[in-house]
């Protein structure tokens, strides 16, 4: 059984508990073990870089150093956590002086960062390491006829520059392939990699809500019955601001937003409850009960 170091991130403890539960359940069923990092800390999301980049790197480097100790590859289910890990490692490798300073701080916790981890987003682990074929071979309850819009969001794709081609940055396909593997119909819609804008709810409510509306609109116009996400923040933004969008723009969106792991779990025959389905604000049951 292949084992990975797993960095859940703060959102997964409560807000995105369904993501956490379904990640553990589906990987178990697929023969992969996720070992949660011991005593990880919050990495500061995208917010912290406003204030102090050095401290932001330190927060993430601590988690990386903890992961290195396990000798395993590391996966993160939150796109922002993933981006922070990916870039902290690459910046610190390029800047040995900075790495030395941070290692001096990490000594206080008996840790050292060396920068040789393989870091993946959980969705990539599913599509690259386990693979669509393998997942397909274990599907017992294919989600036939369910039209699902895959939502990549931003930080899983950008600003990393290690894509195979410009096409795989601008128009990736791996999420679609996963949805096809579980028997669903992936919906092609233009805004799949567009930012949801949810983080702007505080600085500009109108900008945030318009961006969420545009995204929902784009998916619904292509007759998506639900949207699949791979990030707790994407999920929360698309779900929690739907009511506000409806009020603001007189729309009537009622699109369930699930995590890809919940959908994979259903196809693998895992009961809804174990996947945290039922905790969403817009119920997915009417769509899934076919």
């Amino acid at each position: 059984m292949k084992e990975y170091a797993y960095f859940p991130g703060c959102s997964l403890e409560k807000l995105a508990i369904g993501y956490h539960q379904s990640a553990l359940e589906t990987t178990k069923k697929l023969g992969v073990k996720l070992r949660e990092l011991d005593d990880w800390n919050c990495c500061g999301s995208t917010t912290y870089f406003h204030i102090d980049e050095l401290l932001a790197y330190t927060l993430t480097a601590r988690n990386l150093a903890i992961a290195e100790k396990t000798g395993l590859d590391v996966v993160a289910p939150c796109s922002a956590c993933f981006k922070n890990m990916f870039f902290t490692q690459s910046h610190l490798k390029k800047d040995p002086d900075l790495a030395e300073h941070i290692n001096f701080a990490l000594e206080e916790d008996g840790l050292q960062f060396s920068g040789d981890l393989r870091i993946q987003h959980l969705l990539e682990m599913f599509t690259q390491d386990i693979g669509a074929e393998e997942i397909k071979s274990k599907v017992t309850n294919p989600l036939e006829g369910v039209r699902i819009a895959p939502y990549y969001g931003c930080q899983i794709l950008r600003p990393r520059r290690d894509h195979d081609s410009a096409e795989s940055l601008e128009n990736p396909q791996y999420f679609e392939e996963l949805l096809t593997a579980i028997g669903a119909t992936p919906v092609d819609y233009p805004l799949k990699t567009r930012c949801c804008g949810g983080s702007l709810i505080i600085s500009s409510r109108v900008a945030a809500l318009s961006m969420v509306r545009n995204l929902l609109q784009s998916a619904v116009e292509r007759e998506a019955a639900l949207i699949a996400t791979a990030c707790p923040m994407c999920q929360v933004n698309l779900e929690c601001y739907q009511q506000a969008v409806n009020q603001e723009f007189g729309t009537n969106f009622e699109v369930p937003i699930l995590y890809f792991t919940q959908l994979v779990g259903l196809a693998l025959g895992i009961p809804e409850k174990k996947l945290g389905i039922g905790k969403e604000l817009v119920s997915a049951m009417p769509v899934l009960a076919r």
Partner: peptide
């Protein structure tokens, strides 16, 4: 957000 991290090592974010 930063203060919460300093105090606890974790946050509530994004709620």
């Amino acid at each position: 957000f930063a203060k919460t991290i300093m105090r606890t090592g974790r946050t509530f974010e994004p709620i």
